[in-house]
């Protein structure tokens, strides 16, 4: 789009030049200058696009060594303050996560692009097991290419892809995945108590390939941090965002301080909703489903136990936000 604007400007400049000049020699030189400028513009834009593309690719590569335990330790006080005072976070039965070794933590996701459930759980994980334990969180491409991407990478966040997750599991890490991702996190507020992975079964295949247990993590409260109105999937498709950025949604919500918030690209100030997270018992897939488990059966089981737990947590809540 920018390239076509430049081309048009150069062309217009050339046309103006030839129209306003009475000197035939000068008139014949101007289109050549304009064409040169257009070429230079195109090559400049191409270079910029190349740099951007390179940076995006770098941001999405899984360099597990970007995780920085010292940085995490030094920043936990901020996270603890936010989690304890603003979200009144409560993580139950975190000791159910195996003490060591690779494990796939599968969570439901809420709260728009701010995702307070990740904040509360990450703090709980690092304070319980220590920053020394390898822990990686999978995040959407756009999150990692945003200005906070480099900071998140130091926390152990990598781009959500099968390959990145497999690498992390092979390195013996605990990996946190939110299969519902951008779809679930922007579900309308009236679907607050719904686990919605949109049929994404990749996490099951990942656990089977890596031979690691699945530990379901169920969170409530995140979807009460704003008023979420619509996924905006038609809008996203219409603008081609699904093809360009893997964005299935262009959510519409009512948030602070924007009021009507389309896209939630700049995030928002979340309401201080109480976040409660329940860690469920590990599921050994081979032990429970046999040597060659059916992916659909595993998916149905995991989502069913999570949904049941979410209903239980919802039943405990007296008021939205208050908890």
């Amino acid at each position: 789009m920018a390239a076509s604007r430049t081309d048009t400007a150069a062309q217009a400049h050339a046309e103006n030049g030839s129209a306003n000049s009475g000197h035939p020699g000068r008139a014949s030189r101007v289109p050549g200058i304009a064409a040169g400028a257009a070429r230079r513009g195109r090559s400049l834009l191409g270079a910029v696009a190349g740099v951007v593309a390179g940076r995006v690719q770098d941001a999405l590569k899984a360099d597990l060594d970007d995780r920085d335990p010292d940085y995490i330790r030094e920043n936990l006080p901020w996270v603890w303050l936010m989690s304890s005072l603003w979200f009144r976070g409560e993580v139950r039965d975190i000791g159910r996560i195996p003490e060591e070794g690779a494990v796939l933590l599968v969570g439901n996701h809420s709260g728009g692009n701010v995702t307070p459930d990740t904040t509360v759980f990450t703090l709980a994980f690092y304070t319980y097991f220590g920053v020394e334990r390898r822990f990686h969180q999978l995040a959407h491409n756009l999150v990692l290419t945003s200005p906070i991407g480099p900071l998140l990478r130091r926390y152990g966040t990598v781009a959500a892809s099968h390959e990145n997750a497999r690498k992390a599991l092979e390195a013996g890490a605990a990996v946190l995945v939110y299969p519902g991702g951008d779809w679930e996190v922007h579900r309308p507020s009236w679907q607050t108590n719904r686990v919605d992975f949109a049929g994404r079964r990749g996490f099951v295949r990942l656990a089977l390939e890596a031979g690691v247990p699945i530990v379901p993590i169920v969170a409530i409260g995140g979807q009460e941090t704003a008023l979420f109105l619509s996924h905006g999937e038609r809008l996203s498709r219409g603008l081609g965002l699904d093809r360009l950025f893997r964005l299935k949604v262009l959510p519409i919500s009512v948030t602070m301080p924007w009021l009507i918030n389309v896209g939630d690209f700049l995030g928002h100030v979340p309401l201080p909703s109480k976040i409660t997270i329940q860690v469920l018992k590990p599921i050994d897939l081979v032990e429970r489903f046999g040597r060659d488990p059916d992916v659909d059966a595993v998916y149905d089981h995991v989502t069913a136990v999570m949904q049941e737990t979410l209903y239980e947590l919802a039943a405990e809540r007296r008021l939205p936000v208050v908890g």
């Binding site: 030094e74 920043n75 936990l76 006080p77 901020w78 603890w80």
Partner: peptide, 16 residues
């Protein structure tokens, strides 16, 4: 305390 945590560390220590 948390060495190197700066102002957040001081705040968190007092709140804790």
């Amino acid at each position: 305390g948390v060495a190197g945590a700066g102002i957040a560390g001081v705040l968190a220590e007092h709140v804790a």
